[in-house]
Each structure stands twice: as structure tokens, then as C-alpha cells.
């Protein structure tokens, strides 16, 4: 009996050890980033001995970033873009999803098929004609191009529809008998009920838009329109040896997305879990 419990304890210890190693591998690059962001360029690669926090931390790296490049402009652009895209995505997706889940109309199947069939289509397949079209519309080098590019995804409609399918139809029927019109049912009944799905969609959209790299690379050419990702990249190209500064900029770029992630973490996990299990 004793050997059983001992064996089990050993097993537990091995599990914790393995998990600890994985945590270290996951976290070490971030620790390195934080540590490097308060070092001078000479200290960054100093290995023998390696110090986590230098004796004289260079907090001024965090000040210099704002003056060396238009960092505030990049952040402003990214915030505007992310907020507008996320709001549009939430409203238009949940709107369309309500019709697909709870209303009968002609052409429903065909329209939904159009969404489904593009869900696995990589954006990279049609990014070239999309760019030519946007340019003809005069949207090249505008944030508006980035908005319309990301705000109407098939994924959002699909995700919201799946959630609405789980809400009993009888709820809508009862409301209809009470004389509510469809817009009121959507706004007063469905929307409040779908908070978890909206949270999932929020975090996915926020993360994708905030971190988008290829889209802004194609569309945003002038300095004052750049997002934080491509702004940072130019900075890295320009000041390639000023590692401390680059790391400070990187840390700042990570903060908003990590905050949103930690706040909505539960929904992120639920979102990928349900989409994964149900396929």
C-alpha cells in the first residue's frame, strides 16, 4: 500500500517537473525581453555572469522609444483600427448569425454555404486581387482599407451562429407571440444571452487585428498611418543594434493584448475548446 502512494507521489513529482520545464521554455523569452528592455546595449548579451536586473536599470529606454519614432501615432492607429474592427465584427456577425439561426427565409442555405465555403480559404489566396480592388477604390494607404479587410469575416458569423443554435427556439417564439418584432428579440433577448460568444469573438478579433502584420505591410505605406507592428519593424531595421530600445518597444506593444487576453482568458480557452471539439 505504502509503495503505491509513494509511486503515485513520484509520478506527481515527474508531472510537475515536466510542466515546470514547459513553463520555463514558454516564459524565458518574455523574461529575456523584460530584462533586456532595461539594459544598455553592452549589457544585453553579457553572459558571464548573466544578470536579470542590471545594477543601473535603464528605465530611460521606455522614455526614448516615444521620441525616436512616432510611437504614440502607431499606438493610436492600432487602437483605432482594433476597436473599430472589433465593434463592427461583433455587430455585423451577431446580426447575420441571428438570421441564420432563428429566421426562415428563401436562399438561407445558399447564403450560409457561401460563408462556410470560404472559412478555410486562406486570405493569402485572394489578397492580391483584393489589393488591386482597394487601390481602385482609392483605399490604398488608408486605415479604412484595414477595417473593411478584417471586419466582415465568415468566422465571426459561423461562431455566433453556432452559439445561437444552442438557444431554444421556444424563447423567440414566446417573444413573437408577445408581439416583439425580430429586432427587439435580437436586441433584448439574444444579445444579452450571447455574452460568452461575444467575448470569445472579441478576444479573437482583438488579438488578430492588433498583431496583424501582412495586411498593414501591404496597405499602410506612409509613416503616420502605420500600425505598431510595422512601425516597430521599421524601428528594428533602423536601430538594429539598439537592443534595449527595441525590447522596450516590444514590451509596450505586448501590454494591451496581454491585458485583454488575461481579462477574457476564460472565453478564449472556451472558444478554442468548443470550436476544436465540435470541428
Amino acid at each position: 500500500m505504502k509503495s503505491m502512494t509513494e509511486k503515485r507521489k513520484m509520478g506527481k513529482a515527474v508531472i510537475y517537473l515536466l510542466l515546470l520545464i514547459v513553463v520555463l521554455i514558454t516564459v524565458l523569452p518574455f523574461v529575456w525581453m523584460l530584462s533586456a528592455s532595461i539594459k544598455s546595449d553592452r549589457e544585453v548579451f553579457q553572459m558571464n555572469p548573466f544578470v536579470l536586473i542590471p545594477q543601473e536599470p535603464h528605465w530611460d529606454n521606455y522614455m526614448k522609444v516615444w521620441t525616436k519614432i512616432p510611437f504614440a501615432v502607431f499606438i493610436k492607429n492600432t487602437v483605432i483600427l482594433t476597436v473599430v474592427v472589433t465593434i463592427l465584427q461583433l455587430f455585423t456577425s451577431s446580426f447575420a448569425a441571428y438570421a441564420f439561426a432563428k429566421l426562415e427565409f428563401s436562399g438561407k442555405k445558399q447564403l450560409f454555404l457561401a460563408y462556410i465555403s470560404t472559412i478555410a480559404m486562406p486570405w493569402q489566396v485572394y489578397m492580391v486581387p483584393q489589393f488591386l480592388m482597394m487601390r481602385r477604390m482609392g483605399l490604398n494607404d488608408t486605415l479604412l482599407a484595414m477595417v473593411v479587410l478584417q471586419a466582415f469575416s465568415a468566422f465571426g458569423v459561423f461562431l455566433m451562429r453556432q452559439f445561437y443554435m444552442g438557444i431554444p427556439d421556444s424563447l423567440c417564439e414566446a417573444a413573437r407571440i408577445d408581439g416583439m418584432n425580430e429586432f427587439k428579440i435580437y436586441a433584448n433577448i439574444m444579445l444579452p444571452l450571447s455574452k460568452p460568444a461575444l467575448a470569445t469573438l472579441t478576444i479573437f478579433t482583438f488579438v488578430a487585428t492588433w498583431n496583424d502584420y501582412l495586411g498593414p505591410t501591404i496597405y499602410l505605406k506612409s509613416e503616420m498611418k502605420k500600425t505598431i507592428q510595422i512601425g516597430l519593424q521599421r524601428f528594428i531595421g533602423q536601430y538594429s543594434s539598439e537592443y534595449g530600445l527595441i525590447m522596450a518597444g516590444s514590451v509596450i506593444s505586448l501590454i494591451p493584448v496581454l491585458i485583454v487576453f488575461l481579462l477574457l482568458q476564460k472565453y478564449f480557452v472556451e472558444g478554442i475548446a468548443t470550436s476544436g471539439v465540435k470541428g
Binding site: L103, S106, Y126, L149, F152, S153, A154, V157
Partner: peptide, 28 residues
């Protein structure tokens, strides 16, 4: 009427989706 209501719900997303996703796919 029913159809119109449903289309009104779908339109905001679908117009964007059709113009910026479906058309470029065909053109590609």
C-alpha cells in the same frame, strides 16, 4: 416581409463579405 427582415439582418455583414472576400476570390 419575413424575407426582407432576414435580409436586413444579414445585409451589413454580407455586403462587406461579398465585396471584399467573394469578389476577390473569383477574380483571383
Amino acid at each position: 416581409r419575413k424575407n426582407l427582415v432576414a435580409y436586413a439582418f444579414i445585409a451589413p455583414n454580407f455586403i462587406g463579405f461579398a465585396v471584399f472576400t467573394m469578389i476577390p476570390i473569383v477574380v483571383a
